[in-house]
């Protein structure tokens, strides 16, 4: 009996070496479980919004653009190599069907991580071009007719460049993003006054108007006021060109804030922007780009281009005002910075 009790007692005990091994294993697994719990819910949302494919029907040769019908995302470019992103911004209020919005803002961004250079080229929303979906029209309609794929293909076809990635954001997404990162600091270059600013972001009449006044100088802007600054164009003699410059200023201010972001921010960002952001970039690529944003600290390393005169001129097509491109002037400029 005594021998039996000893045997049971011995079976109930664990050697120290086994215990230490179990503690170490449990510690590692606990860390993984904690991380998994943190990232999983938002990762689902993030993967829904990122890595999106779009049917890019480009007429460019494969050497320049995507071959016809090849879906994006394109094969990942050389990690650390230069790449081109097409940023698309849309009104996404109740005036429009969710999948048929105009792109009020189209900005081509060339990022060269090795040279630590960024070039931003704003495409006028009223630029009159052949559309990839057929016919000609203002370039802001491409997304409306055929989604991101049509927008990318239209840009590729007309500007004769290759777009590696695209990213679309709605107005409400921009407001949320800026608010949640604590606002942005920038120098508003002049007073922006508008008696006919669209009152379509809140709950009210999407066709209504409101008055806005964004005062000049260095300041901290929340999402709503940053949107007013980049969106207003009525009291700007250069209309969309002036607005494009302001959009680039806000992008740079956002980039400065992106320096503060890290992988731990991806889940809440994904939850916050669910439905307001779509991109061809994968989550891992976005995480990989965060340090790139931080590495480009010299303001002189950011080149800003707006396609005003002499690259374009105002005109009228079928009774509609439009911006007419001078491709002889535009293409050499574009190919200089978007090889």
């Amino acid at each position: 009996m005594v021998h039996g009790r000893r045997a049971r007692a011995s079976q109930d005990r664990l050697p120290w070496t086994a215990a230490i091994l179990l503690v170490l294993t449990a510690s590692v697994l606990s860390g993984v479980a904690g991380s998994f719990a943190y990232f999983l819910p938002a990762a689902v949302l993030a993967f829904q919004a990122t890595g999106q494919s779009a049917d890019v029907r480009s007429t460019l040769s494969p050497a320049i653009g995507n071959p016809s019908g090849r879906p994006s995302p394109s094969p990942p470019p050389d990690p650390g190599g230069a790449f081109t992103v097409l940023l698309l911004g849309s009104d996404d209020d109740d005036k429009f069907y969710a999948e048929h919005v105009l792109t009020q803002s189209m900005i081509l961004v060339r990022v060269d991580p090795k040279a630590k250079q960024v070039t931003m080229l704003s495409i006028p929303r009223d630029l009159y071009v052949p559309l990839s979906v057929g016919g000609s029209g203002k370039i802001d309609g491409a997304y409306s007719y055929g989604g991101a794929g049509a927008a990318v293909a239209t840009v590729q076809n007309n500007f004769r460049i290759h777009v590696d990635e695209w990213c679309w954001i709605g107005l409400k997404g921009l407001i949320k993003l800026i608010d949640e990162i604590g606002g942005i600091d920038l120098v508003t270059t002049h007073t922006v006054l508008d008696d006919f600013y669209p009152a379509d972001v809140g709950e009210g009449d999407p066709y209504g108007y409101e008055r806005v006044a964004v005062l000049p100088g260095p300041q901290h802007l929340d999402g709503t006021h940053a949107l007013q600054y980049v969106r207003s164009r009525h009291d700007d003699l250069r209309s969309d060109f002036g607005r494009s410059e302001r959009q680039q200023q806000v992008l740079l201010a956002l980039r400065a804030k992106a320096r503060m972001l890290g992988p731990a921010d991806i889940p809440w960002l994904a939850q916050l922007l669910a439905g307001e952001v779509k991109t061809s970039m994968s989550v891992s690529r976005i995480i990989g780009l965060l340090p790139v944003a931080g590495s480009i600290t010299d303001p002189a390393a950011v080149r800003q281009i707006v396609l005003g005169p002499p690259y374009t001129h105002g005109g009228s097509v079928d009774g509609q005002s439009a911006v007419i491109p001078d491709w002889g002037q535009i293409l050499p400029l574009v190919h200089q910075y978007f090889p």
Binding site: A26, S35, A37, F39, L261
Partner: peptide, 27 residues
């Protein structure tokens, strides 16, 4: 006794990891 200890360790470390990652976010 060891099983109880291990369960408490797993629970504590999981919560700590979750909280720590959250504290590293910009927000």
């Amino acid at each position: 006794l060891f099983a109880v200890f291990l369960a408490l360790l797993v629970l504590t470390l999981s919560i700590t990891t979750y909280t720590y990652i959250g504290s590293r976010s910009h927000r």
